[in-house]
């Protein structure tokens, strides 16, 4: 009897936590996320030269920043400023939307930190990235 009881308890304990192991993917297939992704992809063509020249860098918060205004010709400074703020608005919305789409709005900060790391990891050589508060070229 005792053995049966123990086996039962053990199987309950094992079964009850099985779903936690089966953690699949995060859902990123929502119209809002697709729209943000499309808008960022389009903007990227305009931002890319500024990344390459080092005028704009990738921050450790998963955003972009104008780090060297002198690298931008005077005539383009207004344009680069609005590109940077539009990009940051999209990125912040993207992190919020991903957390929301997965039923955990409180994950937005964690999503943001994960992206911050991956943007920097995937950035090509020569782009400026922020690490530990300081800027350095990759």
């Amino acid at each position: 009897m005792n053995a049966v009881f123990r086996a039962l308890v053990l199987s309950v304990a094992m079964l009850s936590c099985a779903p936690a192991v089966a953690q699949g993917n995060l859902d990123i297939n929502t119209p809002a996320i697709a729209a943000l992704q499309g808008s960022m992809q389009q903007r990227h063509a305009q931002l890319a030269p500024f990344y390459a020249s080092g005028a704009v860098g990738l921050t450790d918060r998963g955003l972009v920043a104008l780090r060297d205004a002198n690298a931008v010709p005077l005539a383009q400074r207004g344009q680069v400023n609005s590109l940077v703020s539009a990009e940051n608005a999209d990125r912040a919305a993207l992190y919020r939307e991903i957390a929301q789409a997965n039923g955990h709005p409180e994950w937005a900060g964690d999503v943001q930190n994960t992206f911050a790391q991956r943007w920097i990891d995937k950035a090509p050589r020569g782009w400026w990235v922020q690490r530990g508060g300081g800027w350095a070229p990759k």
């Binding site: 309950v12 304990a13 009850s16 936590c17 779903p19 936690a20 953690q23 699949g24 993917n25 995060l26 990123i28 996320i33 992704q37 960022m40 992809q41 990227h44 993207l94 991903i98 955990h104 994950w107 964690d110 999503v111 994960t114 992206f115 790391q117 991956r118 943007w119 995937k122």
Partner: peptide
Amino acid sequence: GLSGCVTINIYFPAAAAEKAADRIIDEVWQ
């Protein structure tokens, strides 16, 4: 056991988030 599961499931799924980030970044940066 059941309440333990609920607790475990609200942990942030870091590996899944990384995969999602990679997919989006690959798209945005082509």
